[in-house]
Write a protein that binds this DNA or RNA. Structure first.
Lengths: 245, 245
DNA sequence: CGGATCGTTGACAGGTATCAATGCTGGTGG
DNA sequence: CCACCAGCATTGATACCTGTCAACGATCCG
């Protein structure tokens, strides 16, 4: 993890204004005047797979926007098991709870090499006082988190294991033209869907055998959206007897 | 459902200032000046059990704060089944997505006779422009929704049916000194926990037989927190063989 | 090459869904 | 007032999905 610090606030601002994914990020519609209010340099951070952005309970001094890569938010339960409560990607904001001065609620672990912009909480707050632009974006982020959580809850935690996996793959491939998506490890998949590692493995193995998914690389899969949708609808064709719920 | 409209903005403001649960609601730390910016009257609404506050897809013109009662947010899936994604109570905000100009994402149905304050989106926005106070409260609400959703996800959707029910009852009874809580109908319980109506019924029936819960009224139960916690930990004593996960 | 990690597969038990039938309760109309 | 109905809760029998325990294969890396 090598912070790529830019030591000049003005440069930082200029950088934000030129950001390739600016339309997606928190500062999307700030004006040049707004940027003048950012007093600290914006840090750019790069992380490799498996590294940790922050841990649950850490003091929250910044929020992060995902510029690229994939991150999972992990929550440990009292019995030692863990659940993955969210997966974040380009344009998403990580650690929003920092704005509420609450310790981070999860462990944020990198799934695919990722880069972030680090936004100190103090800057966000100051900026919000001076400019109404940020509020709109923050609202949108919060909204997205919540509606994603709802989707998650309603689709990824009910039905048969096959259906959950199908939902997950389609979720991971959403608005991805190539129909290619990140394929989580089996343990993570279990933690995402509330199923066991073995069940996750069995389902993925079956999907592979039937050609519903094809590996592009160890953690990238091409998916057959139609077939997966059929699974979700409870397609009788998939060897087992009629299943629907 | 009988709107109890107050036709004078000033009165409204005075009312908010005197609100018994003001510390819990969105307008918690507005100043008198702030209230002057509210141009529309605040409606107070009362609903009986089973009534609908709004439907999924409705045009979002207001958000609501819960003054009393209990509300469920229901999401229907393509196959006709439904999931309850959240339960809201005093001090919670319903319909936050309205701030983002998105159609309501759920059906909001009253579980226990409830009263709301109706806050037009236009007012919220105007108020936020003129005063920084509201922002802090909004942040807190969003935060709470998200962290509740996480709890939900990690606790209420994994483990055995017994454990999920135990978690749910403790969740419903949280910070309730009397150890009494709302007891959902079995179908709702199923929709909350991703189990079937029959399984929910079996579990509740067993809990009643063992004295873990006692009915105070058809939809109110006294709960034995200790016993329920033991269930969650995978207590072997509960007739079945060792279960833990 | 050997070890570690991860994915796959098998056998089996047990939890839950499913289908079906029977109590229970509150409200309605005769 | 009581019979009756509709909706909800409960319970049983059975099939099957999934968790559990265990073994084996694949891959990566030192």
């Amino acid at each position: 993890m090598q912070p790529d610090q830019i030591n000049n606030a003005w440069h930082t601002a200029a950088k934000c204004e030129e950001c390739a994914i600016r339309s997606m990020v928190l500062f999307a519609d700030l004006t040049k005047d707004d940027f003048d209010h950012i007093h600290h340099p914006i840090h750019e951070l790069n992380f490799a797979t498996g590294e940790t952005l922050y841990n649950q309970g850490d003091k929250p001094e910044a929020i992060y926007t995902v510029r690229s890569g994939l991150v999972k938010l992990v929550s440990y339960l009292s019995d030692g098991s863990f659940r993955i409560v969210r997966i974040l990607r380009q344009g998403d904001v990580v650690g929003l709870e920092a704005l509420d001065e609450k310790p981070y609620l999860h462990h944020a672990v990198i799934l695919e090499t990722a880069s972030f912009c680090r936004l100190p909480v103090s800057d966000i707050k100051a900026l919000n006082e001076s400019s109404p632009h940020l509020f709109k974006q923050l609202t949108a982020r919060w909204q997205r988190v919540i509606s994603d959580a709802d989707t998650w809850l309603s689709k990824l935690t009910s039905g048969f294991a096959k259906q959950r996996v199908a939902h997950l793959l389609l979720y991971l491939a959403r608005d991805c033209k190539t129909k290619q998506c990140y394929l989580p490890g089996r343990e993570d998949m279990g933690a995402l869907l509330a199923i066991t590692t073995e069940t996750a493995s069995r389902v993925i193995a079956e999907f592979k055998r039937k050609g519903y998914i094809k590996l592009a690389s160890p953690h990238q899969a091409m998916i057959d959206q139609e077939a997966l949708n059929a699974i979700i609808q409870g397609d009788p064709e998939d060897s087992s007897v009629q299943n629907q719920r």
